[in-house]
Amino acid sequence: MTEEIAGDQKVMGRFRVNGDEHHVAYAPHKTLLEVLREDLDLPGTKHGCELGECGACAVLVDGVPTLSCLLLGLEATEREVLTVEGLADDARLHPLQAAFADLGGSQCGYCTPGVLVTAKALLDETPKPTREQIQEALAGNLCRCTGYLQIFEAVEAAAEECAP
């Protein structure tokens, strides 16, 4: 049977974000970005255009880098969402986070959440990426501060760190 969700009232949805389950009422025309920031109190995910043109809002959905500004909240329920808030292992930084903080991968920090989760997906798939693979993977995340080079180096350093 076709499922129907009406547009004019809030609906209940079950969101699995960073391993936590949230059962919340949300407006069904909201994107995942709005649900995260406004309904789930997770402002770590940023927005720079809300039109898919910058990558600041990137999150992982079922492990895949996804633009939360273009994904409807109602299509994100019951899926595994990972945001920057879920990267650290309790209080311990993820190796990517540590490398970005140490090596200049983050200047103003605004594109950083989207870059970090995208880089995590890369390392999950390709533990020892080449510089070209890193560039390709991060080609959807605009950064105006760094010139990217320290970002690439931080990803490479994290890959070293993660290696068994």
């Binding site: 940023k46 970005f100 983050s106 103003c108």
Partner: peptide, 20 residues
């Protein structure tokens, strides 16, 4: 060469930008 003092906050997504 060292980690900037606000580095941890930035990589955690906890830097409080105005719209946050």
């Amino acid at each position: 060469p060292r980690r900037r003092v606000d580095g941890r906050s930035k990589v955690l997504g906890q830097t409080p930008f105005a719209d946050d």
